[in-house]
């Protein structure tokens, strides 16, 4: 009845499991051009989470293999065979000792896992307070786009967050304050950090120390209404030089090209100015994204379309055709007016 545990079987079980959980996502993620893989950490936080995840996975993977092997063994070994006599097997009512053992051992495992988890919770969630000079960004969630304010730099932008890289030798973490203008949202860039919710009346905080320059993708992770699926998010992790250049370009006032004065006039006179801001004009609305440097962003509508003149035209004509649920109304402009406005917008570098 008692046999030695089948070690090769267990090992291969663990291996298959590990493949399933750990190897498959990166393999699939590598295929993706814009990966949001939770198992491809690129920042201090994500690395902490990843190593804890692997520790937890080792534990639950071990339990999985042991329990499921026992189950499989029982199902095969104790199945009724045709040759079996038609009688009842020995009745066993229980064993206090064994039940005690399989109560105590899981508790010990829980304690180990809990202590480890607690350490990482404190390490990730309670960072050292920001020092002078650390970048601080206020993230405001809107239905259905992201507003990024850099109070110390005087920059306001939307949907594409620029932060500096933070190497181990030269740590330069970014501290985010998360607010919401309307309903609950959740800020999630899987490769950089776990998610944190943006809840009205409840400011939240998080920090990111990205190790590698590059572009990282994420999106709103808390259902926030019709446009929730199109509330995408891009984070540009810049080298110090790139970041300085970006800051410089963002702090300039809006380009004022006399060639598109007609478009600018429509923008200022029509309802556009009620919701959008363009520095250096009379448009100071705050309901929609700041458009001062619209053309510095790769996408429009929180990642719903590439930022091209054609898409802009479509957007101004009827935002809901690109992004159902968008709060911006169709502006009821004539085709010529639309052309003029788009021509103006495309100058806003």
């Amino acid at each position: 009845m008692k046999r030695r545990p089948n070690l090769p079987l267990i090992r291969s079980g663990v291996f298959i499991l590990a493949t399933f959980f750990v190897a498959l996502p990166p393999a699939l993620g590598a295929v993706a051009r814009a990966s949001a893989n939770t198992l491809a950490p690129k920042s201090t936080q994500a690395h902490e989470i990843f190593s804890l995840a692997m520790f937890a996975l080792a534990i639950v993977g071990g339990i999985f293999v042991v329990v499921e092997s026992l189950l499989t063994y029982a199902v095969i070994k104790f199945r009724r065979r045709k040759t079996d006599p038609d009688q009842e097997p020995p009745q066993v009512y229980g064993s206090l000792r064994i039940e005690l053992a399989w109560t105590v051992i899981p508790i010990l495992i829980v304690i180990v896992l809990f202590l480890t988890t607690a350490r990482i919770i404190f390490a990730v969630q309670d960072p050292p307070p920001p020092k002078n000079g650390d970048l601080q960004v206020t993230v405001v969630g809107h239905q259905f786009w992201w507003e990024f304010r850099y109070p110390t730099l005087g920059i306001v932008t939307a949907n594409e967050l620029h932060i500096p890289v933070s190497t181990r030798q030269d740590p330069d973490p970014t501290y985010l304050t998360l607010l919401s203008a309307d309903v609950d949202h959740s800020f999630w860039v899987p490769e950089l950090a776990g998610k944190t919710d943006l809840i009205p009346n409840h400011p939240n905080h998080m920090w990111i120390s990205p190790h590698k320059p590059g572009v990282y993708y994420g999106q709103c992770a808390q259902f926030c209404g019709t446009g929730h699926a199109n509330m995408l998010l891009t984070v540009y992790v810049d080298t110090p030089a790139q970041f300085a250049a970006w800051v410089k370009s963002q702090r300039r006032p809006a380009v004022d090209d006399p060639a598109v004065a007609a478009g600018r006039h429509i923008f200022e006179m029509d309802a556009c100015a009620n919701c959008h801001t363009i520095n250096g004009t009379t448009a100071h609305g705050t309901y929609g994204p700041d458009l001062t440097h619209l053309m510095s962003r790769a996408t429009i509508g929180a990642g719903v379309a590439a930022n091209t003149a054609a898409n802009l035209r479509e957007w101004v004509k009827n935002p809901n055709s690109l992004k159902p649920g968008a709060h911006m109304p169709a502006m009821q402009l004539t085709n010529q007016q639309i052309d003029e406005v788009v021509a103006y917008l495309t100058t806003l570098h």
């Binding site: 959980f21 996502p25 699939l28 993620g29 590598a30 295929v31 993706a32 051009r33 814009a34 990966s35 949001a36 893989n37 939770t38 198992l39 999630w188 899987p190 993708y217 994420g218 999106q219 709103c220 992770a221 259902f223 929730h228 699926a229 199109n230 995408l232 990642g303």
Partner: peptide
């Protein structure tokens, strides 16, 4: 694990 959130009616084609 690849980062797909719930409650979305559509998703980008380039996430894998």
């Amino acid at each position: 694990l690849l980062g797909m959130p719930r409650s979305i009616y559509t998703y980008p084609a380039n996430r894998g």
